[in-house]
Amino acid sequence: MPELITLLSSLCLLLGAFLIFSGGLGVLRFPDFFTRMHAAGVTETMAVTLIVLGLMLHSGWGLPLFKLLLILLFVMITGPTASHALAKSALHGGLRPLGDDSNNERH
């Protein structure tokens, strides 16, 4: 049983590391701010979940488990909120996304 947990934990951590790296790569490669935001989103959702999950499995039962859970919850709530606020601010600041096909019905 402990071996299984170690295996699972390693799997989560490695997958998370891969996702983080992919997200970082996307932030460098994608053509404009709004598309880069999607890449950053990858690192803030699944990757964070996987890494924290891996750490939770690694840490075993105890208080740190709950602290990790708190960190995860916190990131999951603030991450999209910050992204949304940033996108809204960029939009109102006059930054037009690539492929903006909404006929600029905004005022």
Binding site: F34, M37, H38, A39, G41, V42, T45, M46, M76, I77, G79, P80, T81, S83, H84, A87, K88, A90, L91
Partner: peptide
């Protein structure tokens, strides 16, 4: 709803 949209990568809610 807006945060769920933003949370799933590939879509971002820009204004609500």
């Amino acid at each position: 709803y807006a945060n769920s949209i933003t949370l799933t990568p590939g879509t971002v809610a820009m204004d609500l």
